[in-house]
Amino acid sequence: MTTMTLEPPRLVRTKPLLEIRDVSRSYGEVRALHKVSATAYPGEVLGIVGESGSGKSTLLRMMNLEELPDSGSYHLDLPDTPGDLFELDRFARRMLCATRIGIVYQNPHLGLLMKHSSSGNVAERLLIAGERRFGVLREKAREALSASEFPLERLDAPPIELSGGMQQRVQLAKAIALEPALLLLDEPTTGLDVSVQALLLDTLKRLQQERKITMVIVSHDLGVIRTLADRVMVMRRGEVVEVGLADQVFQDPQHPYTQQLVHAKL
């Protein structure tokens, strides 16, 4: 394989919004991540694909500051957040994660209080950020749910009574309520039936275009990644084996594992 090394960016002068460097993490004998680095530029969608257990969700939890690596560093190019975010104390990490980062998990139970109202779930985010006025909370929760194309007549229904697609919209509303700089999506459409999946994808695409949110999306569904991602990173056994423009990774995959992955889907 004679892939030429690429140069650093010259035309795009903005700094990456997200820069995670050489993170490694082991759980006992399991090496979940080994020297993984990733960047995402402002407004860009980075797709992550890879086999089961390759460390994708672990990496996303680190980007969400829920979990720390054994080694490695993490920078977000935001005002008032200089330095390595992994060095912040627990409180500062939680605050940053609640106010500047949004996440949607595959399993809505991880992201939502299933028995509270949907609007309450979204408002909780705003409460953490310090909003106390009831009217404002309700209005902002409503706005975020509406932007996520959640049916507003179900505002007060608890997620447990909603369909999978609607639960994902509540997670999404919660994630975008504070206009985060970074939106993390871990298999957001898995388990939804195809038509519901298409609608959710469409909502994501629209939000991305209208709000220019930087996104990192993990999915086993290459169609989802193809629809949304500008660049794609391929992971295997805790390592990055390939990264490139989405069309290049899909049409001219370089690594044997990527070739296998792409051709299996054709």
Binding site: L6, E7, P9, R10, L11, R231, L245
Partner: peptide, 15 residues
């Protein structure tokens, strides 16, 4: 001038 064979992915996306 920029060499498209070696330019960074983000530069290609920009072009």
């Amino acid at each position: 001038p920029i060499d498209l064979a070696r330019a960074a992915d983000v530069d290609i996306a920009h072009l």
